[in-house]
Simulated assay, not measured.
Amino acid sequence: MTHATTPGTALITGSSRGLGAVIAQRLADDGHPVAVVYRSGAQAAEAVVAGIRAKGGTAEAFAADVTDEAAVTALVAEVADRLGPVTTLVVNATGPQPEVDPTEVTWQDHLDQLTFFVKSPTLLMQAALPAMRERGGGRIVQIGSDVIERVLPDMSAYTAAKAAQHSLTEIWARALGPDGITVNTVAPGWIPVERHADVPADAMTAYAADVPLRRMGVPDDVAAAVSYLVSPQAAFVTGERIRVNGGHALG
């Protein structure tokens, strides 16, 4: 039986907190053994694992730098040993997103973003691919952003990298489709998580006022989209970019 009908091990990068932690819990609720991957913050990762186990799910925490080739290869092998072959890959890890005037952006600024949103996804896909092919299929979901439509001048490096990331999604969807592997992007708007704790309430109010649904999104909104895309119900959906932003980027 292929991954298209049987939940397999799900590896979620950057899942010790924020969107990744909620996605990990949702996929565990769906029946996937879950690899909670983090770069720092072991205590937070173990808390996510404990939460999953408390609800009857299966999870383990794994520390890895997902921008390093050797580390990614070792990670996917360790997850397979402890939880089973990775057949669902959720590329969620991110790094700092500084705001820089586009006239002052450096090539290093671009490289920093491309490392997270082009290099790391490529390494992860390549490491997970053999098991997906062997099992007759798999799911890859990249966590993108609606920033591509918002055209924010001070976010040029981040925006360019996020656009490149979705281009990978489309190319991989075409290339890996014959292997039964679907590849999609979930593109959230501004979804407040722990790192936004110091954002003034009036800033969120102003943002929500510009959202057609008149509210901020919550992590569960993103997790629900990921859950759908890795489910059997989405077996014929690939190469798509689903915005989860309450219509905020509509023209």
Rank of each mutant, 00 (worst) to 15 (best):
T88F: 13
I52R: 05
L83Y: 08
V105I: 14
A50Y: 06
V118W: 05
L75F: 09
P212R: 07
V100R: 03
A80R: 12
A163G: 13
A28T: 06
V66L: 12
G144S: 14
P219G: 06
V218E: 13
G41A: 10
P212V: 03
W172R: 06
H166D: 12
I181C: 02
E104W: 01
R53P: 11
A201N: 05
G239V: 09
V90D: 13
S16Q: 10
A225C: 07
K119S: 06
A224M: 03
R53A: 15
M125N: 06
P7A: 06
Q97T: 12
P232N: 04
T2Q: 03
T115M: 06
G144M: 03
V199D: 08
Q113S: 10
L129W: 05
F62P: 15
F62A: 15
A44L: 14
V237S: 09
A187R: 13
K162A: 11
T5W: 13
V193A: 08
K162S: 07
L83W: 10
Q126C: 01
G246S: 08
A24R: 00
R133D: 04
D179K: 06
A21T: 11
D146Q: 12
V36E: 06
H196E: 10
A209M: 03
K119C: 01
D81C: 00
V37K: 13
G217N: 04
R26E: 07
P232A: 09
G189H: 06
V193W: 00
A201F: 00
I52F: 08
P178S: 04
R195K: 10
R241T: 15
A64E: 06
T122C: 03
A209D: 05
S227L: 09
A225I: 05
T58Y: 00
L11H: 09
D221K: 03
A71D: 13
R241V: 15
H166V: 15
P130E: 03
G41Y: 07
P232Y: 02
M125W: 09
V226E: 05
P85K: 08
I23L: 01
G251F: 08
V183N: 05
A61Y: 11
A206Y: 00
Q108H: 12
A70E: 14
P102T: 05
I12C: 07
V147F: 09
R133M: 04
P96E: 12
Q97G: 00
R241N: 14
R139Q: 05
G18Q: 10
M132W: 03
P33I: 05
R53N: 00
E78R: 15
P200K: 04
I181T: 04
A45I: 09
F62L: 14
L114A: 06
G56Y: 14
V79W: 09
R53Y: 07
A63F: 09
S156M: 14
T205A: 13
V66Q: 12
A47P: 00
E240P: 00
R17K: 14
R135E: 10
T103M: 02
R214A: 07
Q113K: 07
A10H: 02
E69L: 03
I181K: 02
V226H: 04
G246C: 08
A224E: 14
T185H: 01
